[in-house]
Design a protein around this nucleic acid. Structure first.
Length: 750
DNA sequence: GTTCTAGAAC
DNA sequence: GTTCTAGAAC
């Protein structure tokens, strides 16, 4: 208002006390270096600048666009030049600022159009950044912003636009603005845009291993662009190329090469889009023909890409020169495979997120048949990056792997791959081998080789699909393992679905195992025969966590021949053994051998026959014991929520005369509704398809009552003292549920 | 003082 | 699942 009016057209240049203010609208993602740019200019420039920063304008709270507009207007009125330090990535965001400046003020745009990866890595690393955009969210936010990025045009009202796509561009722009004296103006027009029409840049996500290069390296429009790539990925205008470092203190982050780092990224849930990153199988050390392998990869991807919902498959290779990547890209492109669901990526599979900004919850490992760390290539890298817990977790799942098979291994939350990269599962896969120096060489038999390679990808993708499926359980019944997870929970999440094929594998192994046990178990050593690859698991309804101590029954069920001392009977379906800590004079367990059937909650109608078998075998043993001691009374049933993994039927004598019965919980687990009588369970499963569970914690802490006369007792010793004498008849409901007694001991005690 | 329980650790 | 143990209950 107090400025001279209307005279600037004929005001002689240089006579002015005050120059004409400039408004520079910074355009760039978080981490692109906007604030640094402004600060540098303001430090060096003799012109009065104000930086209007949305990150800081709210004084701790999130700033608003309105605050920025007001602050900018005030500064301009004072004759100051203004930096609008916010992302301003689309014209809608810029419009009002442009309007604020024009026509009195020159409105410039400085576009920091830097590689997404660089922005992400800075945003993630930045601690205490003013915008508070830290950690894992940063990548998602930056990606989302860049996906909708709209580069500024002169037609929006800018008098000058400068595009910076690399270090030297930024340096040049910095010097230009830093050198601006109060009276200077800059030429109008758009500068520095390498390819104004570029709507689609390199399509395939690429990522080069981080390299340090001199800060003054030339512009990196080296354009090693892949012709096939843009057809495959349809990422939006990520005009992101080049070597970049904006400020001296970030100069170490220089990265070389073209960098369309993250392309088809889901809009607002990047971190939660299930993604499998997998290396090309067998084409490296196993010397499988690349042409044939790429054919199979694309064929299998095409087959699975529709079966995995919104999940993504990403073929990863260390080098962009990889022949397999370009073969696959070309073939995928021909087949019009949905590029948002399948693409290739150049990078280190153990650092996809931290170095490449690509979130993958599952990575595949080209494993060796022994499932051992070491060797070389991907296997060594993954085991090394995952830390020792992967080896341990792998051992728990399988001891070896046959070509064509895969095994899903949940990662411990302590593994760096989990905490740093967000990987929840590693799927070990073994492909066919054509290298005479390696085991199981197929000697150029590509008929078998292709078959096995197809099987390997099928196993891998099925394993991934099973994880996707399990992790898609609605909220409330399941916690996303990325955010909250115990190591034990992983066990369950890894349970893959039954596939027809897998079922066969499982059946085969099962027969073999049983045969082995009948023949004194000499056949089934871990290294001489393939271990059941854990694919026969059923989909379960519970997500109970099983600690390491809860696995012993499971191990016995899987390999009863190794536990001969404790095992009384082995059949195809069950193992019978004495409870290690019997709660009565007789207490045995009829253990199901059905893999994946961990507890009563997992039981469905298909298991009815198994339940009947278990009951019959339990009865048989109870009767045997009754022959030895006719005073015994047995009850057969299941715990609603067992502590030990693997479905087991308790056959327990009702004297409860045992030093191992020590706690309230012990008593109540056999003498409240928590104990589900076998006959009831079979009835419920038969009529409702599942058993009724009474797994309320309260049941286990209920007052102690005699199971016969229902009298209450203050503590375990008193209760035990009572039950040793009580001869009251059993309550009707217990009797009805089928207590097993000797004929002369029916219902009542003699 | 002893007995018993409940929760943590394994 | 058990073992261990602090501390509550008696």
């Amino acid at each position: 208002m107090d400025m001279e009016i209307d005279d600037d057209t004929y005001r002689p240049k240089g006579r002015e006390e005050k120059g004409k203010p400039i408004m520079v609208i910074m355009v760039g993602a978080p981490g692109s270096g906007k604030s640094t740019f402004c600060d540098q200019v303001m430090r060096l420039s003799t012109r009065p600048w104000i930086r209007v920063c949305q990150d800081t304008i709210g004084n701790g709270k999130a700033g608003t666009k309105a605050q920025c507009l007001k602050s900018a207007a005030n500064a301009l009125e004072d004759g100051k030049s203004v930096f609008i330090d916010r992302c301003n990535l689309d014209s809608e965001q810029r419009k009002e600022f442009v309007k604020l400046g024009r026509p009195q003020v020159d409105v410039h745009a400085v576009v920091l159009d830097l590689p997404a990866k660089l922005c992400i890595s800075r945003s993630v690393k930045r601690s205490g950044h003013e915008g508070n955009l830290q950690g894992g969210r940063a990548a998602a936010v930056v990606n989302r912003m860049l996906q909708n990025k709209e580069l500024p045009k002169l037609s929006e009202g800018f008098t000058r636009i400068i595009f910076c796509q690399n270090e030297s561009d930024v340096q040049a722009a910095l010097s230009t603005y830093s050198a601006l004296g109060p009276l200077d103006t800059l030429p109008q027009g758009a500068f520095g845009q390498k390819n104004p029409e570029a709507k689609v840049q390199v399509g395939i996500m690429k990522f080069f291993k981080k390299k340090e290069i001199p800060a003054n390296a030339g512009p990196a429009t080296n354009g090693v662009q892949d012709s096939a790539s843009s057809q495959i990925s349809e990422e939006k205008d990520l005009g992101l190329k080049g070597v970049v470092s904006v400020s001296a203190n970030t100069g170490k982050e220089l990265t070389e090469g073209e960098e369309p780092v993250v392309g088809s990224v889901d809009s607002d849930s990047l971190n939660e889009t299930p993604t499998l990153a997998f290396p090309s199988l067998s084409t490296s050390d196993f010397q499988f023909n690349h042409e044939k392998a790429s054919e199979i990869i694309v064929e299998k991807v095409e087959e699975f890409v529709d079966k995995i919902g919104n999940a993504r498959l990403v073929l990863v290779d260390m080098t962009h020169r990889s022949k397999i990547l370009s073969l696959v890209r070309a073939k995928a492109s021909k087949k019009n495979i949905d590029s948002s669901k399948f693409f290739t990526f150049v990078g280190d599979i153990t650092q996809l997120y931290s170095q490449g900004g690509l979130c993958c919850n599952v990575i595949a490992n080209a494993a060796n048949w022994r499932l051992k760390p070491g060797g070389g290539g991907v296997n060594a890298a993954i085991f090394s990056a995952a830390g020792p817990t992967l080896d341990a977790a792998t051992k728990e799942q399988a001891k070896s792997l046959r070509p064509g098979n895969a095994v899903v291994v949940p990662l411990a939350s302590t593994s760096p791959l989990f905490s740093r990269e967000g990987v929840t599962h590693v799927i070990h896969v073994l492909g066919p081998n054509m290298n005479p120096q390696r085991p199981n060489c197929l000697d150029n038999d590509y008929i078998t080789g292709c078959k096995i390679l197809r099987e390997a990808y099928t196993s891998l993708f099925e394993g991934f699909a099973s994880i996707v499926k399990t992790q898609a359980i609605p909220k409330g019944t399941y916690q996303n393992p990325r955010f909250k997870q115990s190591e034990a929970q992983h066990h369950l999440e890894s349970a893959p679905r039954n596939g027809d094929k897998r079922e066969n594998v499982h059946e085969y192994d099962k027969r073999k195992r049983c045969k082995g046990s009948q023949e004194e178990g000499q056949t089934d050593t871990p290294d001489s025969s393939p271990v059941n690859p854990r694919y026969g698991k059923i989909e379960r309804s519970t997500n109970k966590a099983w600690g390491p101590w809860a696995q012993s029954l499971y191990h016995i069920a899987m390999q009863p021949e190794k536990n001969k001392d404790s095992v009384l009977e082995i059949s195809d379906d069950v193992v019978v053994l004495n409870d290690l800590y019997p709660k009565g004079r007789r207490h045995l367990l009829v253990l199901s051998r059905h893999e994946g059937l961990d507890c009563l909650a997992d039981v469905r109608k298909v298991h009815l026959q198994l339940l009947r078998t278990m009951h019959a075998i339990g009865l048989k043993w109870a009767e045997k014991f009754l022959h030895e001691d006719a005073s015994l009374v047995f009850r057969l049933g299941y715990h609603s929520e067992p502590s030990m993994r693997q479905l087991h039927l308790h056959v327990v004598s009702q004297d409860f005369d045992s030093k191992h019965l020590k706690h309230k919980k012990h008593w109540n687990s056999f003498n409240t509704a928590f104990f589900r009588d076998s006959v009831d369970v079979m009835e419920e499963v038969s009529s409702h398809g599942e058993a009724i569970l009474k797994d309320d914690e309260k049941l286990l802490s209920m007052e102690l009552r005699c199971h016969r006369c229902r009298s209450a007792h203050p503590n375990i010793p008193k209760l035990k003292s009572h039950i040793s004498k009580c001869r009251a008849p059993f309550p009707a409901n217990v009797l009805k549920n089928g207590l097993v007694c000797a004929p002369n001991n029916a219902n009542n005690d003699p």
